[in-house]
Design a protein around this nucleic acid. Structure first.
Lengths: 241, 241
DNA sequence: TAGATTGTTAATCGATTAACAATC
DNA sequence: TAGATTGTTAATCGATTAACAATC
């Protein structure tokens, strides 16, 4: 490994050059789910550190910023390879490119948002996708009010054209932002296409095949945990009085 | 505990009667975070089971539905009390009311959405809050385009009126759907009010006091995990060829 | 070389599962 | 009573932390 190699910071933050930097051996079976869930957090903090202009970071520094143990950081990173250097720490840009590589940023994934309602629109208009190197190439909806319009950079097509357009634009990831009621029907159609993954906001469990990865999002769960904690805090305070 | 007590299903799903049913001793210190994170999932499945018209469920049945072990379900529920009955299982409605009680549904929490952009609008227009007994009583924004308008049931006020309206409407929970850039300034203002919790979508870490609970949401993290899994799947398939 | 910090092993801690006695 | 299923203890598993030798 060569920590002296210099990467242009702007290139890296813009994720333009990453595809070229990527090596082909990012495949690591058997990394624990606990570690994988933490990777996006490293991604976010590293971007922040790059923006701060730092070029070097130690596990101890990161540990203070992120409020986790330095030990955990070193363990996590070592699941994927020795990215650091004894006595020096980690080259921030190198580490960031490795994390990007692991997370598939720069794979050039193409996504389509199915359901151009409030949530679908909000997602497309956010900077979330470009930051992660994901390209939203199309939206789909049943309503004539939106079909044909452009939301953000994405054109809205009729649901009738779903299979055709997914194929045409080589879509890897379908983002389901439609109602619970349509979820099953649409997901069944999706599984017959060449889709690789489904990001599911419908709240409805999706039956999947071994060829399609599904990630379910339940934003409301997080609200409930907040309510739980607020309620507990109130009980606690009441008890102390 | 009395499993024979009957609860009206409609009342329960509508969360109207719950406040009256709630007992005052829901305070449980030292429940592990792993258990707490699973509670909203029980909440969701129990609602589903109620809608199916079932009145009784065993840990084994739930286990099959939810794809977790029956053992885990019994352990989880027992952190909060013996809600079941040997030889019978769990009374679905009773269990649901207990889970609601634990999660603060029916506490009548009042929320305000700060930032009436795409995400703020999408949230307010969803059914998320009423399902969980949370009342969105106001929105705030700096833009004259939205100030004075009504989004869903909530009126949009100028950010200048933040403190005044939060006080007036006894808001417990602030929902931050504004940009990273405004996050610090607004959260500092919030900490000076009587707010209990902050649901933070800004992506910016918020400094908190012991009196205010913060729950951070990073939707993009879930997208990255999906991308990770899709990328791994591709590497794996390539390897097999 | 001396100092710093990683990579990695071993120890600890917490969470999950299995098993079964209690009991409805 | 016999059957079913919980509540709960004990065993297992996995994840986190501590420690330190390797090494830059």
């Amino acid at each position: 490994m060569n920590n002296n190699r210099e990467y242009d910071i702007e290139d890296i933050l813009n994720e333009e050059n990453i595809e070229k930097i990527i090596s082909k051996n990012s495949f690591r079976p058997d990394v624990s789910p606990a570690v994988i869930k933490r990777l996006p957090r490293y991604f976010r903090y590293l971007r922040e550190i790059i923006r701060m202009g730092k070029t070097r970071v130690s596990s101890a520094e990161l540990s203070r910023m992120m409020n986790v143990t330095a030990s955990q950081i070193r363990q996590d990173l070592n699941c994927f390879g020795g990215f650091g250097q004894q006595g020096y720490g980690y080259n921030v840009n190198y580490l960031y490119t490795k994390i990007c590589e692991i997370l598939g940023v720069g794979c050039g994934f193409r996504a389509a948002v199915i359901g151009a309602g409030n949530l679908g629109k909000a997602l497309v208009r956010s900077t979330m996708f470009e930051k992660r190197g994901v390209d939203v190439v199309a939206m789909f909806d049943v309503s004539n009010d939106v079909i044909g319009k452009k939301i953000g950079d994405a054109k809205v097509y009729s649901m009738d054209l779903l299979e055709e357009k997914l194929e045409k634009y080589s879509v890897d990831i379908a983002i389901l932002t439609l109602t619970k009621e349509c979820a099953t029907e649409v997901s069944e159609r999706l599984l017959k296409t060449g889709i690789q993954g489904i990001w599911n906001f419908t709240g409805k469990e999706i039956k999947t095949t071994e060829n399609v990865v599904v990630e379910n999002v339940h934003i409301g769960d997080s609200l409930m945990i907040l309510c739980y904690e607020v309620a507990q805090k109130m009980y606690r305070n009441d008890g102390e009085k």
